[in-house]
């Protein structure tokens, strides 16, 4: 079942002194439960794609369908996790997690129970009444994950959510996120510039180039890696070959002057 379909998406950023073409003719589609990564140099419009799917930006041309309904008419919830956690410092962890339901005016006991269950699942139930500043980076990002999960979105957008964490925390969190998204059968797009992370977590990898943002290639991650959790996948025999292939492709881009 195709959940998300982008067909010929382009996006321009306009300013007083002209415009830049951030995206050109982006097309791909996602099946239910699929996990794809978008990999590419900075400025290739990776985050712009997510903002468009999250309805925070209006694309300038092309069509997007969610469940075959045009995105404008679709009521589908979309979960968006940013580079930093952006927990509200004046709210406790629990209040932060309940922000989505509060905005949508559907706070009730069932929702609160769900929040408690999810917090328990990510190991935060003992700090739920503390403020975000009292938590470590990894804990904060876990709280942000729960906040995004609360609205039960089918499509999950992750915008480099692990990039601000130390390596060990990052690996652990990758595992946790992969497990939870798998368990709830979420369809996910991860934006990253970490090749290893993309391979370890996803089913397919979309490689992009910059100026303008275009899709260069789409890689299928070997099936034996997909089945494994990220930490195990990183140590798998099939990991290094695809890593090298993607690495070389990125290097080639860089040499021809189109890279970073």
């Amino acid at each position: 079942m195709t959940i998300l379909k982008l067909a010929g998406i382009s996006h321009h950023y306009f300013s007083k002194n002209g415009y830049t073409k951030a995206l050109e003719d982006i097309s791909f589609s996602l099946e239910r439960g699929e996990f794809i990564s978008i990999l590419g140099p900075s400025g290739c419009g990776k985050s712009t794609i997510l903002s468009i799917i999250a309805r925070l930006l209006q694309h300038t041309s092309g069509d997007i369908f969610i469940h075959e309904v045009p995105i404008k008419e679709s009521k589908e919830e979309i979960g968006y996790m940013l580079q930093q956690d952006y927990l509200f410092p004046w709210k406790t962890v629990l209040q932060n997690v309940l922000l989505g339901p509060k905005i949508q005016k559907r706070e009730d006991e069932a929702i609160e129970d769900r929040a408690n269950v999810l917090l328990q699942e990510v190991g935060l139930s003992n700090v739920k009444n503390q403020y975000p500043t009292e938590l470590s980076g990894g804990m904060r990002q876990r709280a942000a994950l729960v906040r995004t999960l609360m609205n039960n979105p089918e499509i999950f957008l992750l915008d480099e959510p692990f990039s601000s964490l130390d390596f060990q925390t990052k690996l652990k969190l990758e595992d946790l996120v992969a497990t939870i998204l798998n368990q709830y059968e979420k369809t996910t797009i991860l934006v990253t510039h970490d090749i290893g992370e993309a391979i370890a977590m996803s089913d397919r990898i979309i490689m992009m180039e910059a100026n303008p943002g275009r899709i260069v290639k789409i890689y299928d991650v070997p099936t034996e890696l997909r089945a494994e959790s990220p930490i195990v996948a990183r140590k798998h025999d099939a990991f290094q070959p695809i890593f090298d292939t993607i690495w070389q492709e990125l290097e080639k881009k860089e040499k021809s002057g189109e890279g970073i």
Binding site: Y80, L82, I103
Partner: peptide, 14 residues
């Protein structure tokens, strides 16, 4: 105010 706080809220449809 950091625009990302607004982004978080808008992604919830605020």
């Amino acid at each position: 105010v950091d625009r990302n706080y607004t982004m978080v809220l808008r992604s919830f449809g605020a």
